[in-house]
Amino acid sequence: MYSQALNNAPAEPAADDPRFQARIDAEDRIEPNDAMPEAYRRTLIRQISQHAHSEIVGMLPEGNWITRAPSLRRKAALLAKVQDEGGHGLYLYAAAETLGVSREELVDQLLSGRAKYSSIFNYPTLSWADIGTIGWLVDGAAIMNQIPLCRCSYGPYARAMIRVCKEESFHQRQGYEIMLTLCRGTEEQKAMAQDALNRWWWPCLMMFGPPDTLSPHSDTSMRWKIKRFTNDSLRQKFVDATVPQGLHLGLTFPDPALRLDETTGHWAFGEIDWDEFRRVLSGDGPCNRERLAARRKAHADGAWVREAAQAWAAKQAAGREAA
């Protein structure tokens, strides 16, 4: 197996090995066969696989509208977007595999509920405007998070993110264009857009993770240049970029405290409900059980298909040996 072939890497440095840190500080890219501290490897496996799981689970809320997309052009675009997400998942699982873990193990962690994925996908998509909002806000937030990852110290992850970010920014523009069409449409369409923004705004702000004061993995990740900006700074960047876009649409944000701070030039916003964030992350969100059940069902229903493919391949191999 590929992941095993990489295991003859040199002896593993300690987490605080100065030579490893010097490579990081010199902006050197760490590659699969390089020596790396076990904690660096584990952090990356956790982060890359959570990212991959998020792409795969994220196919479900948007997939919910493929059969009801309101025009053939929108149907094709949505299907292609959801397919892109599946492609990102595949790409990211492959990046995680370079760290010596198999895709099967990672999928098993997701299905058994041990692995986390982005909390945002535990919210329901209730109208067509949710598809626009997800593209505009969720993909917009993902881009904010992911652009710095294109410079992540781990080479395969950084390279994967370059392609992922290109596609995400296309999705973001597409989502905004759906919103623009709705907001220039009938009263009912505009109401649909406003309702979607009302429901998605706060969960999107939560996508950047807990506040810096409470973020458990931040310090080491920053030191290892897996992460380059703190949760709060990325969140602020997102709010600053997004609020003018929403105002341009003629929509209002569901936050009475939102205002432009003339002195800093930043948009100040209200208190995020961190109880809701923790609750959804720990399994008690509107769709957690459904999302996981859907993934488990697809995996279980597909077992006989995967077995058939393996059995056929084994027969072919045996046939070749006999010949």
């Binding site: 997939g63 493929i66 995967r306």
Partner: peptide
């Protein structure tokens, strides 16, 4: 397209 998200393998 109804298979999207539910196929037997990625």
């Amino acid at each position: 397209s109804e298979w999207t998200g539910h196929a037997p393998l990625l």
